[in-house]
Simulated assay, not measured.
Amino acid sequence: MTVPPPKDLSELAPSGTLSNVEFSVEGDVKTAKIKNPIKDERSLKPTVDDLTVSEPVTVDKIAEKLEIYGGAIVKNHLSEEIVDKMWDDISPHFKKRTWNGDFFPQETLRVTATVCKSKTVAEDFMCNPLFMELCARFIGKKNTFVIGDELTTAYSEPQHCSSTLLSIGPGAKDQPYHRDDIIHHNICQYREKYEYGHETAIACAIAHNKATKANGATRFVPGSHLWDHQRVPKPEEAVYAEIEKGDAFFMLASCFHGGSANTTKDEWRNMSFMFMTQGLLRQEINIFLETPLEYFQSLSVQALKSIGVAVSQPFCGWYRDLEDPLKVMKPESSNGSDDIENAFKLVV
């Protein structure tokens, strides 16, 4: 039996963006033109002080900054002891560049899947209570569903999407502006003000040393989380998230950003990133192929849930015969109930 070559089925997929683009090719030059761009000239230029959350820091205060700017700075988010322990755990994993392309400059070193290389990253960075509350607000999903003659409620908890330590070395060029939610095909819509329910991921970046405009501080475009999907950011619209060791920069994945050029002679910008996504979406990094089972078993129940070793309610992510992988790995986490929070008889 002869097996025919696979078909290109991509043309069958619906698209909400391709119809608004005109492509052309002349020799080796490929161009794309947005046919009907939305007129939007809004541009914000907050200072570092504008982005910084005042004491005492609360989830409400961080959320307010994110709603307006798409980014927020929290001073002393993690102690120096925790930040140093993360560095000690992760830095031995630095190795020569193994990726192709120019998305990351040649001078940038990185360690991926840090959540599986450091329990400190998993327990103290990813599971930081303030960060967890923020993730629940922006990317947690809770809904009701009809099953038979009952109405049930279910909560899909945010999960790890990717975790990376990036070290930008002298001579590195600007990283291209991008939105991190493109991995989930999130199509941003023009909005006058922020609306909850559309975000697919949120990030927290922790500085291991002082991050400055000169050594590669993350530059991002404030307000771009409210832009149309196809608006192109301009360099002059960006601001630099200059922070000290232990400070955090929180950012919505719908916000344009990129690492900056390192124009120093001998400084490295060292920063750990933690991206969390909706529990019902695919994770950016497949951490399960490279991580020993024993490592997962050594983590707390909450860390396992945040990593994604648990069912996303109501029925996503089962193991074997409808078993919750969390209860298989941590039997003590089972309370004997099923995984639907509540069921109510429907009155029609």
Rank of each mutant, 00 (worst) to 15 (best):
I147P: 01
E80D: 15
K61S: 15
V111N: 06
D28I: 02
K45W: 09
G70E: 03
K85L: 13
P92W: 04
K61L: 13
E64W: 01
W99R: 01
L44P: 04
Y69D: 06
N36D: 14
A63R: 07
K117G: 06
H93G: 00
K96C: 00
T108R: 15
A63D: 12
N76D: 15
K142Q: 12
I82N: 10
K117N: 02
V83L: 09
A136S: 11
P158F: 04
F131S: 05
D49L: 10
T152M: 11
K142L: 05
L130Q: 10
A113L: 00
K85W: 09
I139S: 07
V121S: 00
V53H: 04
I90K: 09
E55F: 10
P46L: 03
I62P: 07
T153S: 14
V53L: 03
L151K: 08
D40S: 07
A72S: 13
I90H: 05
S118R: 02
D28R: 11
F131I: 01
S24H: 10
R137S: 06
R42K: 12
D49Q: 12
N143R: 11
T108F: 02
T114P: 08
V74D: 08
A63C: 08
V59F: 02
V83T: 12
F145H: 12
V74S: 00
L134Q: 05
D28P: 03
K117D: 08
F94M: 13
Q106W: 06
K142E: 15
T31V: 09
K96Y: 05
R97L: 07
Y69M: 06
L78W: 12
K30I: 14
T114I: 14
P46N: 04
F138V: 01
V111K: 03
V115C: 05
V59R: 05
M132F: 06
V29T: 14
N128K: 07
Y155P: 01
F138T: 02
D89K: 04
E55G: 00
A136M: 06
G27W: 10
I73M: 10
S79P: 09
R110S: 13
T47S: 15
T120S: 11
T108M: 15
F23W: 10
Y69K: 02
M126K: 05
Y155R: 05
F145E: 10
V25R: 15
K75C: 02
N143I: 02
A154K: 01
K95R: 13
V48R: 11
E26S: 13
T120Y: 06
L66W: 06
S156C: 12
I139Q: 03
F104W: 14
G27F: 11
T31A: 11
K119L: 01
T112W: 05
P105Y: 08
I90D: 01
V53T: 00
A122Q: 06
E67W: 00
F125V: 12
S54L: 14
E107S: 08
Y69A: 03
L130G: 00
F94R: 13
E80N: 15
G140M: 01
D28W: 03
